[in-house]
Each structure stands twice: as structure tokens, then as C-alpha cells.
Simulated assay, not measured.
Amino acid sequence: MITIHRGCARRRVRGVSWTLDRNVAEGFARGHRAIRNLHPVIASTRVPRAIVLAAFTERGEAEVLIDPRFLPVQIDVERCFRGETGRQGTNVSTCSVSGA
């Protein structure tokens, strides 16, 4: 089992691109490529290594691609406040996210 993270808008938690690096996920939650997230979150979960379709390290993002159909139903989601991230700038909650 590996822990993966995804920084995104709340409505995009179930996606293909994840990272092994929580700091990278925090950066994506704040916004990336001049796209600002109105409802930024950091999603984290544990998945079997076997569902990883590909892994990329070229851009320093520790990116892993997974098939979202194999994500667990229960995913930990942290809501980020006003672009702040990290333990002092997040509100931790667990939510159940329905499949795509």
C-alpha cells in the first residue's frame, strides 16, 4: 500500500493524477498554471501499488496516474483556507466521496 495525495478543487477529488509528495499536492490545491481553486482541498488516501498505471519524476512532482474507479470510497479531505496550506492552515475532515 502507498499513500497518495491530490491538490485540487473540491469537486475534482476523484481524478487520474495524484502525487506521492504532500507538499506538491498543497501547491496544486493553491492553484497551478494561473488557475485558482475557489474551494481548494488536499485529498489523501492509501491504495495498492498495483493500481498505479504510471509514475513520473521529471518535473519534481512525484506524479502517479491511477484509474479513479479503483479509489477507495473513503478519502481524507483537508479544506485549505484562502490559499493557506499546511497543518496550521487546514481544517481536517473525512468525507465519503461518490464515484465518478
Rank of each mutant, 00 (worst) to 15 (best):
S96R: 15
N23S: 12
G31L: 10
N91S: 10
G27L: 14
C80R: 09
I66D: 00
G27K: 11
C8L: 08
R69P: 00
L65A: 08
N37G: 05
H32T: 04
A50H: 01
E78N: 13
E84T: 09
E78F: 08
C8P: 03
A50F: 03
R33T: 04
A9H: 13
A25I: 08
I66M: 02
G83I: 08
Q74Y: 07
R87C: 04
S44N: 05
T85C: 15
P68I: 13
A54H: 11
G60S: 07
G86H: 06
R14A: 08
S17E: 02
E78D: 15
F28T: 04
G31S: 09
E84V: 11
R79L: 14
V52C: 01
V13M: 09
M1C: 03
R79Q: 10
I2W: 00
T45L: 13
R10Y: 12
G83W: 09
L65Y: 06
V52A: 00
E78L: 13
V92M: 07
G89Q: 05
V13N: 03
R11E: 12
R46D: 02
R14V: 12
I66L: 12
C80D: 00
P68Y: 11
A62F: 11
R10G: 06
T94Q: 12
V47I: 15
E61K: 07
N23P: 00
R30S: 14
S96H: 12
L71G: 02
P72D: 04
R82G: 09
I51M: 04
A100T: 03
R69M: 07
A25W: 04
S96Q: 10
N23W: 04
H32K: 10
R79S: 10
E63G: 02
I66T: 02
C80W: 05
E78R: 14
R79A: 15
T3R: 15
R49D: 02
A54S: 13
E58R: 11
R30F: 05
N23G: 06
P40R: 12
V92I: 09
T45W: 05
V47L: 03
W18Y: 06
I42C: 03
R46Y: 00
P40D: 05
Q74I: 12
G31C: 06
P68F: 11
S93G: 10
E63H: 06
G86S: 13
V41Y: 03
G99E: 11
V16L: 04
M1S: 08
D67K: 05
T3K: 14
E26F: 15
I2V: 15
R46G: 01
R11M: 10
P48I: 03
R36H: 09
I35E: 01
I75R: 11
I4G: 02
R10E: 06
R6S: 05
I2F: 02
D76S: 15
A25R: 13
P48T: 06
R30I: 07
R33K: 14
T19P: 01
V16P: 00
S96G: 07
I4V: 13
R69T: 05
I2R: 01
P40N: 08
R6Y: 06
R79G: 01
V41F: 09
D67A: 13
F70I: 01
V77D: 01
D67V: 08
F56D: 04
V64A: 09
R14K: 14
S98P: 05
S44R: 14
A25L: 12
C80I: 08
R10F: 13
N37E: 03
